[in-house]
């Protein structure tokens, strides 16, 4: 039974970076921009978060640095897409490539060597103490780091912001019908810019969590999570609530596969490939489901 518990318990921290990054991506997606650069943004956050936390010994500073660095990268993305009107997909790829090479170079520069970087100087992430009397469920929910709760809080904040503030209303309008916004004298570009920057901050946080939680940094530590976050946006029907559920599902799946790595004799690369394959499968299943929901199952065919 305890192995089941540990799988469940681990699902949350695994889901958190996905959740946070997906929420960021949701903001841009709702303004009409599918941000393919989530991966690069997360990687940037992971590196700088790790770097600064290692140097200062503070997790908070590390997280802030990660967010800031990713924010700067997002600025580049915004500039390309909004000001220079470049193709958003290609700009996203450019962001990914820049982040990958930059972090790799800087890592070699700062740490003087290649490979995995670790630090012991990092304080462990703040965890709430699990009260004994809450039982196993309590332990799953409460014995988590601050980041996990931040993720849920963020989901709530995003939900409120999108549907209960005028900013959110205008942001969604920018995605649905930018011409109407313009006719009202508002500039859709401004809201898109805000969305991209917020997305950068979110992905920076998500990436920072990855490296801080692991207390290590490896080039390509994100391992496709940015792409999975994109899939999660769609699986969650582009709504914060759905994204929470979808990220939990993925978190559970990854936690399960990590757990089974212990006694399944599969090569490491194949395990690494799982998230991609599962995401691809989930994407296809989702599409089929949606397709049938819309075009097939509603119609009862009368006999000819």
């Amino acid at each position: 039974m305890s192995s089941l518990l540990s799988v469940l318990h681990n699902a949350l921290p695994v889901a958190t970076p996905l959740l946070i990054a997906a929420l960021g991506g949701l903001l841009t997606e709702l303004t009409g921009i599918l941000n393919i650069g989530l991966e690069g943004l997360m990687l940037t956050g992971a590196f700088f978060g790790f770097l600064v936390a290692g140097m200062t010994g503070s997790v908070a500073l590390g997280a802030a640095a990660g967010m800031g660095a990713a924010g700067l990268l997002a600025l580049l993305f915004a500039y390309a897409c909004l000001k220079l009107r470049a193709n958003i997909f290609i700009s996203g790829i450019a962001i990914n490539l820049l982040a990958a090479s930059l972090t790799s170079i800087l890592a070699t520069r700062f740490f003087g060597r290649k490979g995995i970087y670790r630090t012991e100087a990092l304080p462990s992430l703040f965890k709430t103490a699990a009260a004994d009397w809450t039982g196993p469920v309590g332990r799953i929910l409460l014995d988590q780091s601050l980041f996990v709760y931040a993720g849920w809080l963020l989901a709530l904040l995003v939900s409120v912001a999108l549907y209960r503030t005028s900013f959110g209303l205008r942001l969604r309008a920018a995605g649905h019908d930018p011409r109407t916004l313009k006719a009202l004298g508002l500039r859709p570009t401004r809201y898109r810019f805000a969305a991209i920057m917020l997305c950068g901050l979110a992905c920076g946080l998500a990436g920072a969590y990855l490296s801080l939680n692991l207390e290590a940094f490896v080039p390509n530590i994100t391992a496709g999570r940015g792409w999975i976050a994109l899939v999660i946006i769609f699986l969650g029907y582009r709504r914060p609530g759905g994204i929470v559920i979808a990220s939990l599902v993925f978190g559970l799946a990854e936690s399960l596969s990590n757990f089974s790595q212990g006694f399944l004799d599969l090569p490491s690369q194949v395990i690494l490939a799982f998230p991609y394959l599962i995401s691809a499968a989930a994407l296809v299943v989702y599409s089929i489901w949606e397709y049938h929901r819309h075009f097939v199952s509603r119609f009862r065919l009368p006999p000819r």
Binding site: S166, L169, R170, R172, A173, H176, D177, R179, T180, L181, A183, L184, G185, L186
Partner: peptide
């Protein structure tokens, strides 16, 4: 110049919420 997925109220107040 209306945002179709929005409600009537949302459309009317958009910009001067």
């Amino acid at each position: 110049r209306l945002v179709r997925p929005f409600t009537v109220a949302e459309n009317v107040v958009l910009g001067l919420e």
